[in-house]
Design a protein around this nucleic acid. Sequence first.
DNA 1: GCCGTTTTCGGCCCGACTGTTTTCAGTCG
Length: 567
Amino acid sequence: MRNQEIADILNQIADILEIQGEIQWKYLAYRRAARTIENLSENIADVLGKQKLPGIGKAIEEKIKELITTGKLEYYERIKKEVPPIVIEMTRIPDIGPKTAKLIYDTLKIKTLDDLEHAARSHRLQRIKGLGPKTEKAILKGLKELKKPQRHLLGVILPIANRIYKDLKSLKEVKQISLAGSIRRWKETIRDIDILVTSEKPEKVMQVFTSLELVKEVVLKGPTKSTIIVTRDIQVDLRVVEDESYGAALQYFTGSKEHNVALRTLCSQMGFKLNEYGLFLKDTEKKIAGETEEEIYKTLGMAWIPPELREDRGEILAAQNDALPTLVELKDIRGDLHLHSNYTDGKNTIEELVAAAEKRGYEYIAITDHTGTLSIAKAIDEPKLLEQITHIQKLNEQNQNIRIFTGAEVNIDQNGDLELSKDLLEQLDIVIGAIHSNLKMNRKEMTERIVHALSNEHLTILAHPTGRLLNKRAPSDIDLIEVFDAAKKYKKILEINAYPNRLDLSDVNCRTANQQGVLLVIGTDAHSVKQMRFMEYGVAVARRGWLEKKDILNTLQLDDLMKKLKI
DNA sequence: GCCGTTTTCGGCCCGACTGTTTTCAGTCG
């Protein structure tokens, strides 16, 4: 049983316990345990009982063991029967929590969400004691939102956020401004855009904000908080605070929730109280910090923590011990080793890609078009690839500013072999291997397939290792620990694919790979000049994975890179 | 149900907002 499946079951147990009115600490414990498992790169079965896992004690450990060995959990099966599925379903509606869901069910005995909609339309909900017309309206609205996709890709939302940010920043009434929330943490998917501002004229700022060109709906407009809906049904929250609380508010609204909970628990132990207005002494309520984030973290005896690390994955302890990593930055990147040209499904010529790379200040790029039996990507055939190699050699002679490496993104077949002749593999500077089909093999076969590919002497880089597509396709079932072992053994490089719907390896996985001693590379997989900007998303994943400059291949200078790759 | 520089019991982050109430519970982030 896979980690995610086990985490899902623990979360469902928490939902049920919450609906049953169990004390909150009990169901919160299940959620915490689920989160621990979700953040794990290792297979839970391999580490359970062998190492201390936060939030997993004796009782939950036993339950996970039962799930692993039998594939079922007696306890879960039993309590599942005690709560009608519709009640759990109802809690997915915004503003409907366990209490309200249970109240509605107990009163009306509805069976489906359609029943709920009917009950709301015929005003039977507002007759329930404790509910009213507003709740009824909220439920009808919430039912519609349920059908929309819940989270947006960072790559979709960030350009929109930056546009709004720029518009607001240009106002003379705006003193300080920052994006906050998950977007400031560069999370791979984002629910809504949070923006924080300080101003002496909040009304004016709110007025501009709620009448921006891309506004579709104004949900809420107040002096300190406004909410709008913009294109693609993206929600944007703007909050205005006092200058003296800016740091505290920024810290608070940046999150994550888990980081904030952990930080405030620590505050409490130290005799402080932290909220969005500042850091206070617990007993006298005296404010001792709040203007800047740096000041708050410093007062708590730790270094300022980069937002990308604020996920409660050990960053607080590291900050206390002055052991935070010096995270890799976009400016450290010296080249892009995963690019597609118009020889196959790319939009631009090699010359155009080179010009764009120069503009970005790169020292080198690799042209890596598709080869193998890939019908969708118009794979390049061998004569055409030879032609491309000659073309690149000629360009390298003409242009000394940037080095163009020959390469290919070679399809890995079902057995883990590279779909390109040995002769050509030997001619290429960089061979990227990637799986594009048969993604649903079982764990053992898939792992063997990848390990076999990694053992191939011609392979340089394994691209998008898990094959996931955000919001669309789950990662393949792979024993990543074994893959990382093999990558280290055969000295192969694993990719952080920066394409916004891939971001593969993920933050958690590239962190584990690095801890296991595997070198990583950030590649954009760009199919056009425009997409070369995706590099910043790949860098963000690396940063969220605690990676430093030295952990990333394409931060090396040209000659060091060539030495490393023996080109 | 978990956890321990206050330990094996008694805590467990903190506040805003909302809708429904006559003082607060539920939900959210």
